[in-house]
Amino acid sequence: MRVTLLGTGDTTGTPTVGCGCDTCERARELGVERSRFAVHVENGRTGESLLIDLSPDFRSQFLTHDVPLPDAALVTHIHFDHLDGLGNAYRVFDDLPVHATGEVDPVTEESVAGTIRRKYDYLDRVTVHDHDPMAPFRTCGLNVRFVPVDHPPLLCYGVVVEDPETGAKCSLTGDTSYGIPEASRAALVDPDLLLADGIVPASAARRHPLGGKHHDDDGVPRTFGTKHMTREGALDLAAELDADRTRLVHLAHYYPADEAFAEPLAVDGEAYDL
């Protein structure tokens, strides 16, 4: 199972359009990018591949990185930076199965799967498949399940992908605060590779109108505002889950330039064989 990080940035990416901050300038100097979030998982046994989230940067990601077009896709939630790349399915695919949860969100009164059907009803090449949270299913020869996480006000899900033949496991937290339910933590545990939302360092929480949440014993916030983990929260979660390897993703340009490209913060194009 080969995992390629096509997009490792938050909703604006790094460099951010029109931004001349030190971090965006440093990214330009290094020639690296953090485009909007997407992960490609290739099953070497079957030759099939799976795309987790459909970034609005879909076109440039697949032109830039040496990965095949997916045979199926997953959508973790309905925010545009994770969904709106689905429009690229037009004329690119003969058929693209898209997997999402059928759980109805009380805020939108619609499930993730239902939103995709409504928003992309003109894409006759897309077939949407509903799944219950935590229920395993098979796609591209891999065992997959959506696990509920905490990204208020919308329902959002992490993902567990396992190779039934080799036992290789990749866990993605999805967009989430540190307040991931215990049942989901149990599903995410012991991955060969953990991709964890670590949008900013904990020091940035003092500049958020809501500050931070889920403080550790030293008062360090593991959640930035209410929706995303801090770097410190993501690393604490990685230790709790006993991850063999951890990469922080969904990263904002609000990291100080001297910290923004240090380990274990990911950049686009990284690939891992599990």
Rank of each mutant, 00 (worst) to 15 (best):
K169M: 09
Y120A: 10
D150M: 12
A100E: 05
P153N: 10
F137G: 00
P181Q: 09
C170K: 00
G87C: 02
R91G: 04
L172F: 01
V67L: 01
L96S: 02
I78A: 05
H82W: 00
C140N: 08
E182H: 14
V92Q: 12
N143Y: 12
V75Y: 02
H129C: 14
T108C: 10
H131C: 05
F146T: 04
G85A: 04
P164D: 05
G85E: 02
L96C: 03
T64M: 15
E103S: 09
L74G: 06
R117G: 03
G179M: 11
Q61N: 10
P106R: 06
V92M: 13
E109Y: 14
D121L: 04
P133Y: 06
E165D: 15
D130W: 09
T76W: 06
D66Y: 05
L154W: 13
I116V: 13
G141M: 09
D84Y: 07
G141H: 10
P106Q: 08
D71I: 03
T101K: 09
H129Y: 10
T176F: 11
S111F: 05
Q61M: 05
D95P: 12
E109Q: 14
Y122H: 12
G179E: 15
A72V: 04
S171A: 15
H131N: 10
L83W: 09
V107M: 13
V126H: 08
T127G: 03
E165F: 11
Y90W: 15
Y120K: 04
F80W: 14
R91L: 14
D132R: 12
G87P: 02
T64N: 12
P152Y: 03
E110L: 15
D130V: 05
G114Y: 02
P136S: 01
R138N: 13
Y122A: 09
T108Y: 14
T64I: 05
G179Y: 06
R138K: 11
Y120E: 01
L123M: 02
A73I: 00
V107A: 08
H99P: 00
I116L: 11
P68Y: 00
T64G: 10
D130Y: 11
G167E: 08
G179S: 15
P164V: 02
V160M: 03
V75A: 00
H99M: 08
